[in-house]
Design a protein around this nucleic acid. Structure first.
Lengths: 341, 341
DNA sequence: ACCAGGGATGTTTGCGATCACATTACCGCA
DNA sequence: TGCGGTAATGTGATCGCAAACATCCCTGGT
C-alpha cells in the first residue's frame, strides 16, 4: 500500500503467488476466500507459496473488485468519557469476530450538525458499510436522512432508526429503577440532576424520573441541569446543598455523582445520612467512591457489541439473531439510605 | 462500496461527473486533488457536476491506483481505561486534521504476542500506512521486527522505536516528581504500589521511584504489585494498612489510588493525616476523590496527537516538526501532607 | 462404451481511480 | 509572423483482485 513501488521489491500479489504455486491467480483467490471447490493439495501448495512470499491480500483491490469493504464506521464524541470507550471496545470486538474492521471518526460534543455530516461523509468515503452513531444526532434533517438511507446506521442507544423504536438499553427503565429505589426507601420526593438534554439519554432519563414520580402522585421538583462532567455535578451539588429538604437525588451519571457528593460534603451534608444519591453507569470507580455509589448499571460493552451485530446482520441481510435484551440493573451500595426521622 | 450495483442507480463515478461537466475524467481527478493547473471556471463546472450527482470519491479505487491509503492504524487494549480513550481521541483528531483516517484494532490486556501480530496484520491488510501501538509489545521478536520494518509504527509512549529513545512523556520524571514531593514534605521513605510490570510505563515508574529514593540514601522498601485497576489498588491498600510506619505511598495510577484510599479508610488510616498518597494521570475524577488526589498529570490527548503527528511526518518524509516536549506536571491537591509528629 | 453432471481450474473482463505521457491552446517575444 | 515554452486538458495503461463464464477431467449410471 505504500507508494507504487517499482522493481523486484514490490509487495507480492496473487499472480506472484499463483506462479510459485503453479496455479492460476483465480485459484489463489479461491483459496483465500475459502471457496469449497479446491482440491486440498492445491490449497496446500497455495498456502505454502503465500507463506514463502509473505503475501498479504490487498484490501483496497479486493474491495474495489468485490464491492465489499467489511468496514464499520463509528462516530463518537472526542472525550475521554468512560461510556464511549467501553462502547467502542464492544463494537470493535464484535466487528473483529465477524471479519470486519472499525474506523472511527470523532467529533466534539455539542458539535454542529455539519460536523456530523462531515464525519459521516468521511466514513462513507472510506467505504463504511454501516455506521454506529455513538453521539446524539438529529436524524430528521434531510441531509442526515439521505445519508442513513444510503448506508445503514445504528444509534448505539437506539434499537433501530425508527424514531419510536425501543432503546437498546431501556433508558426509561433506568430512571424508573433509580426513582423507585429511593421512594421505596421512604423518601418523599426525588430531585434530579440532569444529563445533557442535548443527548437523548439525558432526555429519556429525565422523562422517566418525572413519570415515576407522577405515578406516585408526586409533583416533580425543578430539574437541576448538568452536562455529564464531574464539574457540572459539583455545581449541581452546591445547588442541592442549598435546598434544606432535599433528601434524595437521582443524578444522570456516575461521573457527575462524584462531583455532586463532593459538593454536598463541603456543605456539611452527609451521604447517605442526610442525602441519598443514585446515579447511572456503574463505572469501575463507582464502587470506590466515598461512599460507594448506588447506581444503575449499563452494560456498555454489551451495548456496543449489540449495535455492531445488528448492523452486520442488516448489511449481510441475515436476520439479526435477536440480541438478548440488555437490561439495566440497580446496584445498591452505600450512597443510599432511608431518610432520617 | 455496496455490492456491485447494476443499472442506472449505481453510485456515480468520475466518468459520470466528467460527462456532466463536459470534461475528461482526468480533469475531474485533478480538481479533486487540488492540482494547480486547472482553469477556475472548469473547476467550477466540475464542482457543480459533483454537487448535482452527489458524487463522492471511492477511497478503495483511489488507493489502489495511487498506492496511498492515508490510513493510520491503532492498537489499544480493549479495556475502558481512561488513558487509552484519551490517547485515542488525540490520535484521531490529529489524523483527521491531516486528512488521515484511523482504524482501530483492540487486543485484550496481557495478550499473547500472537494476538498482537494478528492485530498488526489486520491493520496492515487494511492498508494502514503507520501504526500507533497503545499497548506494551515486545518489539524485539523477529516477527514484530519484520513488521515494524515494513510499516512504520510508534509506541504511543515512546519517542521512537530505538529501544533507548526517550519516552514521549518522561516516565522517569513522573516517578521522580512524585517521590521528591513526598520526601520534601518530610516523609522518611515512600512506598510504591506498582502498575503492571508488563507495561513499560509500570517498569519505568518503579525504576524512577527506586532511583529517587537511592539518591537520598534511602533503601527502597519492597514494591507492592498492582495492575492498574481500582481493585488491585484496593488490595494493595490493605497491604499498606498493615504496615504501621508507612506514611507515604506513590501509586502508579489514579484509578488504583481510588481503591487504595478506600482500603486505607476502611482500616482506619486517614489520608493525608496518616498516609500521604501521590498517583499518576490526573483523570477527570481525580479532583473529586476524597480527598482530592495529588497526582502527576499526563497530557494523554497531547500524547496521542504527538504520536500521530510523528507517524505522519515519517510517512510523508517530512521532518517531524519537533513536537513540543510533553512534560508531566505535579498537581498538588489534598491527598498529601507532612507526616505527623 | 457413451454421455450427463459436476468438481476443479483457467481465462477474460471490469471495478474506479491515478499516473505517465501526449496533445492542444495560448502567451510573449524576436 | 513564427517559434519556444508553459498552462490546460485528454488518452491509454495500470493497480490487485473477484465475478462471470469457459474449459477440462473425472465419476457414475445405463
Amino acid at each position: 500500500m505504500s507508494p507504487r513501488r517499482q522493481g523486484p521489491d514490490r509487495a507480492p500479489n496473487q499472480i506472484d503467488v499463483a506462479r510459485v504455486a503453479g496455479v492460476s491467480a483465480q485459484t489463489v483467490s479461491r483459496v483465500l476466500s475459502g471457496h469449497p471447490n479446491v482440491r486440498p493439495d492445491t490449497a496446500q501448495r497455495v498456502h505454502a507459496a503465500i507463506e514463502t512470499l509473505g503475501y498479504r491480500i490487498h484490501a483496497a483491490a479486493a474491495s474495489l473488485a468485490s464491492g465489499r469493504t467489511r468496514i464499520l464506521g463509528m462516530i463518537v464524541v472526542s472525550t475521554d468519557r468512560y461510556s464511549s470507550a467501553a462502547l467502542g471496545a464492544g463494537v470493535e470486538k464484535a466487528a473483529a469476530a465477524n471479519g470486519y474492521t472499525v474506523t472511527t471518526a470523532s467529533v466534539a460534543d455539542h458539535s454542529s450538525s455539519s460536523a456530523f455530516i462531515e464525519a459521516f461523509d468521511r466514513l462513507e468515503r472510506q467505504g463504511a458499510e454501516g455506521i454506529v452513531l455513538g453521539v446524539p444526532v438529529e436524524l430528521d434533517s434531510p441531509a442526515m436522512r439521505a445519508r442513513t438511507e444510503r448506508t445503514p446506521s445504528t444509534r448505539s442507544e437506539v434499537a433501530s432508526l425508527q424514531p419510536d423504536a425501543p432503546l437498546l438499553v431501556d433508558q426509561h427503565a433506568i430512571g424508573r429503577l433509580a426513582v423507585e429505589h429511593l421512594l421505596d426507601l421512604g423518601h418523599r420526593t426525588v430531585w434530579h440532576v440532569g444529563g445533557d438534554e442535548y443527548w437523548i439519554e439525558g432526555r429519556h432519563r429525565r422523562e422517566a424520573w418525572e413519570q415515576a414520580l407522577r405515578e406516585r402522585d408526586i409533583v416533580p421538583p425543578p430539574v437541576i441541569p448538568g452536562e455529564w462532567t464531574p464539574e457540572s455535578g459539583y455545581r449541581a451539588g452546591r445547588t442541592i446543598a442549598a435546598i434544606p429538604d432535599a433528601t434524595a437525588v437521582f443524578v444522570a451519571s456516575d461521573e457527575m455523582a462524584f462531583g455532586l457528593i463532593r459538593a454536598l460534603h463541603e456543605a456539611g451534608r452527609r451521604v447517605p445520612e442526610d442525602v441519598s444519591v443514585v446515579s447511572v453507569d456503574d463505572i469501575a470507580l463507582a464502587a470506590y467512591a466515598s461512599p460507594a455509589l448506588t447506581t444503575v448499571r449499563q452494560p456498555f460493552e454489551e451495548m456496543g457489541r449489540a449495535a455492531a451485530l445488528r448492523l452486520i446482520a442488516h448489511i449481510e441481510g441475515t436476520d439479526a439473531d435477536e440480541v438478548s435484551d440488555l437490561h439495566p440493573e440497580l446496584v445498591v451500595r452505600a450512597s443510599t439510605a432511608p431518610p432520617r426521622g
